[in-house]
Design a protein around this nucleic acid. Sequence first.
DNA 1: AGGTGTCAAGCGTCC
DNA 2: GGACGCTTGACACCT
Length: 296
Amino acid sequence: MKIGYPCINQTLHLSSSRTFRLASYSESKFKEIVDNNLNALTQILEYNVSSGLLAFRITSDLIPFASHPVCQLNWQDFYQGEFLALGKIIKKNNLRISLHPDQFVLINSLREDVLEASLRELHYQCEVLDLMGLNTTHKVQIHVGGVYDDKQASLKRFITRYKELPVKIKRRLVIENDDRLYNFADCLFISKKTGVPIVLDVFHHKCNNQKESLDAVLKKVVSTWKKNDGVPMLDYSSQDSHKKPGSHAPSIDVRDFADFASRLGRRDYDIILEIKDKEKSALKGLEILNRLKKIR
DNA sequence: AGGTGTCAAGCGTCC
DNA sequence: GGACGCTTGACACCT
């Protein structure tokens, strides 16, 4: 069982997701920012290793504009050495890595230009993992996408598009249930037709479900992950009690997490805590997992 | 130095 | 049909 957090570390005063405006794009600016981001990522991973946080989501902003036509530099070759060095840290310490393209990546879009941009972005994110020399247990996770006034047709379009993906993307892609449009049952339907593994977002599942028990859902989730996909990944967060349903808590709800963790049983999962104070909550989560392990 | 409007990209909801 | 939310940071320009 590994636990970690997404993208940003608040203890170290550095960022692996610095970016800049498209209007101010230049090759030197690009190199300056990417140098910074790769260096920051190295330090964040080292912090994670020394803290026992062995799961981590790398930011989509690591290489700004990597999938945009404005970027003409062959960054894959230019930063080959840096990527390999990062991969070495990851492999040596047995870290689990994911990436999560944001809301613009929609492989079931009705718009051709959106689909093309999405494929370019997926290609970039998969390439980052490839360049690090990582195997296919390191994943790129997306949501199913839009509904476009016809959920059945949009589900089917996702399936068709998925089947047409290049192997480079397909072997890393996993889907995640969301809080409004496509719930776990929808993801399972897609997974059965395609074999795509499912990242269960436990919090979204609470918001949007068909009354399946957590245990029943987890059992099904596990069956979607094959040997080459590694241990199933979960996203966890809890409700901000001061905000409307669906809002992420500022800090981990220790009791809720302990309750959730105790229901995971003996099966193995890697968990990303999507909580605003990042590594601070992840460290509390790690402590809870360690305590549970001792009791068992 | 600190404040703030804005940023490559989409979609759904609300009015 | 336009504004806003998602979820949020950080750039870039202003004072």
